[in-house]
Design a protein around this nucleic acid. Sequence first.
DNA 1: TATTTTCGTGTAATCGATTACATTTAAATG
DNA 2: CATTTAAATGTAATCGATTACACGAAAATA
Lengths: 342, 342
Amino acid sequence: MSEKITIYDIAKRLNITAATVSRALNNNPKIKESTRKLVIETAAAMNYKQNRLALALQSGRSNNIGVIVPRIDSNFFASVIRGIEEELHPHGFQVIICQTHEDPKRENENLHTLLDAQVDGILMSVTDVSNENDAAFRNIVNNNVPLIFFDRKKDISGVSSVTIDDFKGGYETTKHLINQGCKSIAHFSGDQSLEIFKNRFLGYKQALLDSGLTFDEKYVIQSKSSVDAGKEALNILMQYDTPPDAIFSSSDFAALGAIQELKAREINIPADFCVAGFSNEPFTKFMELSITSVDQSPLEMGKMSARVFLEQMEKTDKIMIEKKVVLKPELHIRKSSARTTS
Amino acid sequence: MSEKITIYDIAKRLNITAATVSRALNNNPKIKESTRKLVIETAAAMNYKQNRLALALQSGRSNNIGVIVPRIDSNFFASVIRGIEEELHPHGFQVIICQTHEDPKRENENLHTLLDAQVDGILMSVTDVSNENDAAFRNIVNNNVPLIFFDRKKDISGVSSVTIDDFKGGYETTKHLINQGCKSIAHFSGDQSLEIFKNRFLGYKQALLDSGLTFDEKYVIQSKSSVDAGKEALNILMQYDTPPDAIFSSSDFAALGAIQELKAREINIPADFCVAGFSNEPFTKFMELSITSVDQSPLEMGKMSARVFLEQMEKTDKIMIEKKVVLKPELHIRKSSARTTS
DNA sequence: TATTTTCGTGTAATCGATTACATTTAAATG
DNA sequence: CATTTAAATGTAATCGATTACACGAAAATA
């Protein structure tokens, strides 16, 4: 039952002041070498542990940063968090996790909680698609707490962001499908109020136009990111008089659903129909019929976000920097769309 | 550039003391209703935010708990963490994440960091298989910080744990393979210094013996949890004069590797060879040839761990409780081992 | 009216560490 | 030996909130 040992306990034991103990432990050069040694040894012997709360209160820095994501149990977000943790750990920062479950109210609540907890920064992927929480974001910036968006961002002045080039991801994937000989390409999109989905869609559209294919709204289906949603979406497409011969899906899960349904209809993939997804979820490469997908390098995204945060921290002056990092998407071509074995 | 507002600022504005402000904000019944209202309104108007660090220092409770896992980007651990976060969030606790990357030194370091940060509890899945960190674990218990192991546990007195019945998982899976008519069942195991792998192995062995099958060491292969390791392990088995006709793998990834290799050898699954994995990773059910696997209900495991922690917190007395919760594993039978369509 | 309660606030210590400033002691200099 | 200078440590305020105890004023009681 060891009681909590403080620097006062050490001081008492050695008949010196807490100030001296503090200085000795912090390697303050004003302390006599012999005293320093004695203090350090005694501290170790008494099993002293620095109370970081006290330090945090006095210094105004908690050495904690907050991370807010829709949910943690998705390969993408978990990998980003891994990247953040790995990059920040060596700098003595700890990572506090919050989930919004796609609920703007939860997002707002999380922001406040983190602020109350005096985190030194907030790294997050935005949930709110309306502008409900914009005031909260500005409040954070005004409080001089570095705020960094990754993947799902918003344009708020003073907020840095790390994203991938979703337009390019959509563009290149669609181009690839066209190169495979697909003539009529459908698109499964997410909520286009979110920049990521909007941009993937715009990339898709541009690729069609650049290749002389016609763009038709009816081939763009808004669906959730789930296997079932993908099945439903495919069924809608198949009811058309002229069904498409390829799908570029903003979600790997929806892509999988479409594939399952296509197989049930005994349509040959990729010979008669090509499918490509987005996110490069682990299962896409494990499948027997592996699925073409766009990798978002989540690990790198996490590390980069952390680095942007660290940079921001160093600027002690109140100058506000806004940095926008855009990572390159990487298309992984797999069986679901590889007609040629070039 | 709003400066940090404290209760002193509110007090000054209202010409009262910080003590009164504090009491008013905490709904202390001794405060006059009119004063309370006034304080609360002023606090809101001034955009006051409670500094939880100050509260933590004074109360001795940080309202943070630490979670240590080998890595966060695995579906299992991410899901456990999700469960923990969801259960603890309503109680005002925040979750700090640490990763060990399977390195006992990192584990030790994480334990110390969390202790320094004054977390109110630590929930973790053990990395260290030697006894290097036992002293650190005992130290935590002695400091009266609730410590709870989930999944990968160790027997340390005073430490509660939440696990699944790995023995049963191994036993039932093996029994299932036997029921499918498999006569010679191999086992891919992990590091048996870890209880989970030891118990899955023991369950496997017992099932063989109970069914009158012979147990032979050479059919037990120690392999890592990866697709490649599974391939290698399968190749070893296939060199035997009498190769097995089924595998119970402690890892879904290794099971997948084995399946890929079996397909390459044009062996029919499940007709001529059955495979079962462990963990119920998402991809196991997505595969064309879906893989039989044991679900560990990670979400439930996380929630349960959180509940055990909360219970422990409530006991303000220094009585130490040790609670061992064992969840039931759930076998999901899929195509990789389903010969009969019962 | 005198006295006891009750109510609402103020005073000041506390949590544990850091640090500007003051002070003591020893060493260096004239 | 007197005095400046440097080295080492002590004193006390600070970070922001809580709370035991003290205290004055108003209300209740005798």
